[in-house]
Design a protein around this nucleic acid. Structure first.
Lengths: 143, 143
DNA sequence: CAAAATTAGTGGAATTTGTCCACTAATTAG
DNA sequence: CTAATTAGTGGACAAATTCCACTAATTTTG
């Protein structure tokens, strides 16, 4: 490993997070915070997931999560059902409203990303995605 | 552009920010918040920079910045000198203590990145950095 | 099995983070 | 010179996040 790679990677980190930050600020114009969208996504990906499973998945504080879930319950985005296996925990299910809300948000974010990608020549876009895959492959093995 | 590229890029964004998030949490074990380190870095890169120049650079609220700078002043990390050109603004200079603090932090972060990169075979490390450069090139033109 | 220890989730207080806005002093424009 | 603009500050406020003690359910252990 070359020493210069360290500062190159750090520069990339700064630059890329700034870029994503712009995307994230756009989301906020909707009504969901970033952690909130992650929680919705987690439930949408695995219906019946419990808070206890979400915590390590999102590296989120359990009390904080509890509050987010409570907010969603009040907004009728989800329902809790006492788990048959362990009555201390609840299985989480999105309501139709919750799914709709998540989808709306999802589409919006897709739209922003699309607008960005559409500005690229097809070949470069393809190449960039390839680069992202490669980074994930290489760095994914490390963790 | 292929439709699937959108979700691939979003997946990469989520994965990569989670990864960087781990790094960032490590920083916090020090005593500087993320915006604080950015401010220190900005001053360290351009001695005599003014708050007004930092604002667009970091996309940070000017009042928020003012408070960070005030904290640093009290901690003796920096000094303000009324600008000769415009007496409303101050030129910011790191003190020896401020430089030391920034360097300490810098080294720590470098260390974390190094540990990550060292686990990679040299060829893959090189390739990954190359990918990062490419992404920056391609996406950099868009903004 | 009963007591003790552990675990899931909640609620409240406190802290941190970040935004908004009005204000002072300095500067520039008309 | 007067009015409008700009740099930075300070305070009040809102939102995000953490900390901790607590309840109820479960598991462990003697």
């Amino acid at each position: 490993m070359k020493e210069s790679h360290i500062s190159e990677m750090r520069a990339f980190n700064r630059w890329y997070t700034a870029m994503i930050g712009v995307l994230n600020r756009k989301w906020m114009d909707g009504d969901l915070t970033l952690p909130e969208t992650r929680v919705l996504q987690a439930i949408s990906m695995k219906d019946g997931i419990t808070a206890g499973e979400i915590v390590p998945l999102l590296h989120i504080d359990k009390s904080y999560l509890s509050k987010i879930i409570l907010r969603f319950e009040r907004a009728k985005y989800l329902t809790k059902r006492v788990s048959a296996a362990d009555a201390r925990s609840y299985q989480l299910h999105l309501t139709a409203l919750g799914r709709r809300e998540f989808e709306k948000h999802n589409q919006m974010t897709n739209e922003f990303v699309r607008q960005m990608l559409e500005k690229l020549p097809a070949a470069e876009c393809e190449e960039m995605i390839q680069c992202m895959r490669r980074i994930t492959e290489i760095l994914g093995k490390v963790e």
